[in-house]
Each structure stands twice: as C-alpha cells, then as structure tokens.
C-alpha cells in the first residue's frame, strides 16, 4: 500500500492530499513512506486515513500552515503540508 499508482483512471485522477482544495474530497489510494518509514501509514490508519477511505479537505492554514482534513465520517485531523503530500488520493 506504500506505492500508489500515479496514473489516471476512470474514477478520477490520483493526486496528493495536499492538492485538494477546501471543500474537495477524495478516496485514499495509498500512503507513501517518505522519510517516516512505517510511522506515517500506521498513525494515519489509526486515524482513519487509509486505502479506500474518504478524506475531505476542510481548511488550509495560511503561511504554509497545516491542513484540517476530515477522515471518514467523524474524525478531524490536523496534518502538515509535507505529510499531506505523501498521501495519494483519487479525486472525487
């Protein structure tokens, strides 16, 4: 689940979570390891950001601040820009 396919598919284009605008949502396609090894994907799984789950961009902080993302039904998380670029989502 760490190597998300960066391809276009029928369902929508695969982009990073960071490129969703507030109000947009997507389905998680995968979480890249980046510099965090398993740490990021395990923590995100527990918070509900994991393959085939829906994520919704709630707001983006200014001055390069973190994002507020709704994961699944009722969880809101703050995630830093650099971490969000490691989450691949299929735009919906």
């Amino acid at each position: 689940m760490h190597d998300a396919a960066m391809t276009l598919s029928a369902d929508g284009e695969v982009v990073t979570l960071a490129s969703l605008e507030p109000g947009e949502s997507g389905i998680v396609a995968g979480v890249l390891a980046g510099v965090f090894e398993n740490g990021l994907s395990i923590r995100l799984r527990a918070l509900g950001v994991t393959v085939s789950r829906e994520v919704f961009m709630v707001r983006k902080g200014w001055f390069g601040g973190p994002f507020v993302v709704r994961a699944g039904k009722a969880t809101e998380i703050a995630i830093r820009r650099t971490e969000a670029t490691l989450v691949m989502v299929r735009r919906s």
Partner: peptide, 11 residues
C-alpha cells in the same frame, strides 16, 4: 526532527 505531524482535532 523526523516525525510526522498528524494530530486529532476532537469536537
């Protein structure tokens, strides 16, 4: 630092 920043925002 090399830790991810992901934090829950409870209601």
């Amino acid at each position: 630092n090399s830790e991810p920043f992901v934090l829950e925002l409870p209601p």
